[in-house]
């Protein structure tokens, strides 16, 4: 691990200003992803700004009938909150489908949104990677791509967003609240938070330098059946090959987002609207512009079958 200096920020604005003003500074919250990457020298911050003292660990009611989840709320605390389990169960299910008990205790709501891809070529510093080292090329294209993205990817990068939580936030129409280095606040709809890779796969989110996530707002509950189904190489503690987050209404309408297939939770109006027609129609709409590789073409059929299971579960 490269050396760095460390401080605990006293206010969100100060934290944002320090990171904005210092090239090489980064926020640290739970640290479970950042420290892993620092040990591998994939992340090499020179200064860490710890956000644990910023009073961002509360879950509060909003005046609109929803919940405001502080960015520092742990994955465990969020998934086990009684109102989340009752009204936003897809979020509880998604969080509990990811990582391990130990990691969920430390990982935070804001940090989970910012976790980086698990593309093996991103992790292997001997390999070219446009995300880790812009302009160096992509080892995954033409390499082993079984785990990697099939849609929304580019000629520069075919990595996926690896998380589970954000797929649930996608179908819940959550909003990410931030504070910018100048002290102003911003609200970013979850659908706009993660970027598609395009020509700059090193830029993964809509956040500006130094912009700090302060909360994630869940709108008023919408009811319906909340289901999260994850398909992976082992039954627990593994990243998704494909996952489906869905809210299905009694009439068969609803919302659906696919995980493990794209740089972001993959949701579209066309796919949502097709839900009453069944999984085949939804998958055809959702993956119309897919560009799979030979190794990961199976993900499209797997996504359709996984959704078929979700729809059957919703009807049962």
């Amino acid at each position: 691990m490269r050396s760095f200096t460390y401080e605990r920020a006293k206010t969100p604005q100060h934290a944002a200003a320090v990171v904005a003003a210092n090239h090489g500074a980064k926020f640290i919250a739970g640290g479970t992803n950042l420290l892993d990457l620092m040990k591998l020298e994939i992340e090499t911050p020179t200064h860490l700004v710890d956000v644990q003292d910023l009073d961002l660990a509360r879950i509060e009611d909003t005046s609109e009938g929803g919940l405001r989840v502080g960015a520092f709320v742990s994955n465990t605390a969020l998934s086990a909150h009684p109102l989340v389990m009752r009204d936003y169960a897809v979020l509880t299910r998604a969080i509990q489908a990811g990582a391990s008990g130990q990691l969920r205790n430390k990982a935070t709501t804001g940090g989970n949104l910012l976790q980086r891809t698990r593309c093996p070529y991103f992790y292997d510093t001997n390999m070219p990677c446009n995300k880790r080292s812009p302009g160096s090329g992509c080892g995954a294209i033409g390499g082993f791509s079984r785990q990697l993205g099939v849609i929304g990817v580019s000629d520069m990068c075919i990595a996926t967003y690896p998380g589970d939580m954000a797929n649930a936030l996608s179908v819940l129409d959550a909003v990410v609240e931030t504070i910018k280095p100048d002290g102003t606040a911003r609200a970013i709809p979850i659908g706009d938070f993660h970027r598609l890779w395009g020509d700059t796969p090193q830029n993964e989110t809509a956040l500006q330098r130094g912009e700090l996530i302060t909360a994630v707002v869940l709108p008023k509950p919408v009811g319906g059946k909340h289901i999260y189904r994850k398909v992976r190489d082992r039954a627990s503690y593994a990243f998704a090959l494909v996952s489906v987050a869905a809210i299905i209404m009694p009439d068969g309408s609803g919302r659906v987002a696919f995980g493990g297939v794209a740089p972001k939770p993959w949701r579209s109006e066309e796919a949502d609207a097709a839900l009453p027609q069944g999984a085949g129609t939804v998958a055809a709409k959702a993956f119309a512009s897919a560009t799979p590789r030979d190794d990961n073409r199976f993900k499209i059929a797997l996504a359709e079958r996984t959704l078929a299971g979700v729809i059957a579960e919703a009807r049962s």
Partner: peptide, 27 residues
């Protein structure tokens, strides 16, 4: 593993189990 994958480093901090390899002492 020193990367949060094996759990051999699990300790209990403020009542919660965590991977002690993936957290800084200064935190």
């Amino acid at each position: 593993c020193d990367h949060g994958q094996c759990g051999a480093c699990t300790v209990i901090v403020n009542g919660q189990r965590i991977n002690s390899c993936l957290t800084l002492a200064v935190q």
